[in-house]
Nucleic acid binder design. Sequence first.
DNA 1: GGACGGTGAAACTTCAGGTTGCCTC
DNA 2: GAAGTTTCACCGTCC
Length: 514
Amino acid sequence: MPTKKISSETGNASLDLALDTIKIGKQAIVFVNTKRSAEKTAEDIFKKIKTNSHKLEELSNNILKSISSPTKQCHRLSRCIKQGIAFHHAGLVSKQRELIEDSFRYGLIKIICSTPTLAAGLDLPAFRTILKDLKRFGPRGMAYIPVLEYLQMAGRAGRPKYDKFGESIIVSISENDKKKLHEKYILGEPEEIHSKLAVEPALRTYLLSLIATNFVNTRKQIIDFFGKTFWAYQFRDMEKLIFIIDKMLNLLAEWEFIIQEKEDFASADKLDDNKIRATRMGKRVAELYIDPLTAYFFISCLKKSKSINEFSFLQMVSHTLEIRPLLRAGVKDQDWIQEKIAEFDSFLLEKEPSIYEHEYEDYINSIKTASMFYEWINEKDEEYLLENYNIRPGEIRGKMDIAYWLLFASSEISRILNLQNLNKEIIKLRIRLKHGVKEELLSLIKIKGIGRVRARKLHFNRVKDIKDVKNADITKLIQILGKQVALSVKKQVGQEVKEIPKGTRKGQVSLSGY
DNA sequence: GGACGGTGAAACTTCAGGTTGCCTC
DNA sequence: GAAGTTTCACCGTCC
């Protein structure tokens, strides 16, 4: 096999490879196994480079501007970007990711240190991919990643338009390691693909939606349908498959999402032809596309609710399969989480399980996750959440999106259950969650161009609702919001300002003292 | 003698990501 | 499993 030597400048193979890539005028993606490692590797590389680029400077500023209150992470990224190096993982907000991906395509950014976020889906080729870690922490400790994933990452190397070939390099730590990696990944076969239907949450979700859309209406049709899927093809054992389908049907019936019209049990054939249809609730659950188990959980929580507050619903949506992975409660978290449980005891829709129960850990994690949401709707910023919950801006957005959707689902369920008062509260909470604001800012947030930061500024300056905005002097509004936004706000409340009074001071009123 | 600071070893902690889904001005 | 972080014992210095 031909070999190629690369000068060792740092004593660290990944760094040397990255620096060499820049030297030969190409680009590389370095794949690592943790977010922290992505950030550190990028920093290690940028410290070895000195470039001066106006464009990079500008990009670096835009990275910071992607978020209303930049976190430590954002500053770190913006420092790396100044030298044409970036890190990339799910903790970045989508705007930042976009900026990085685009400028890598233009060739402005030379190296991206990434977790597997960049491995699949995106068309982001580089001349070189440097695979630093092929082991990752999983349920059973550190384990080699699947060959399929390796192929995904390796496949990023080689840009059809620019290069005739690409290089994908695995970094090994010893001769022994090298042998092992070569055998497993270079010579090895990729794993078999498994049907996603094989897991119960997916199966019951699809089963319900097939029934709800009248695609299938009898047990026989259901079995016929699933018999033709990839799942059945792979599973082979049709009898066991029918057993699982029956189990799911019984569950859906028990939860009152479907009704099996039992006419005549005289023969098995007839049983097979009995009509199965979705109930009103079942139909809506199928439309909402949530796991029926989650829907059933929501129903039982909402039905038994007595006293409620925001935390009630936040904890409820934080304890679903959809929102996983939950924030993990560490040793240090245990005390304050217990205090939270005590504080919100009467509001919790789900009581604390015994410490010996299997579900205890999940429950504690759901409280931690709910607390994070709770802080968000009480206007704590991203930096605070990063420090106290170890959750990064991009992950906050991701979790928030799911919770927002789950809250919508629960408000719909409460509507069908005729629990109007709950429905009202959930809708309010949903808006608060979306914008991360206290209740008092709800009316201001309706104005286009006003988010949590500007709404708080307005409120601090005694502009507390639409009426106040109407009454407010344009000069004052400009001081608070800046000219463009102030004019747009006035326009939205039906007051077009043609002429701005002279002597309006430039700059904005700050929030100092708040 | 006691407060304080520095040091290094030991113990502890943490660890990827993605798909759909709903509504709406 | 490995890297980063916290804790803690230990020692020397200074007042």
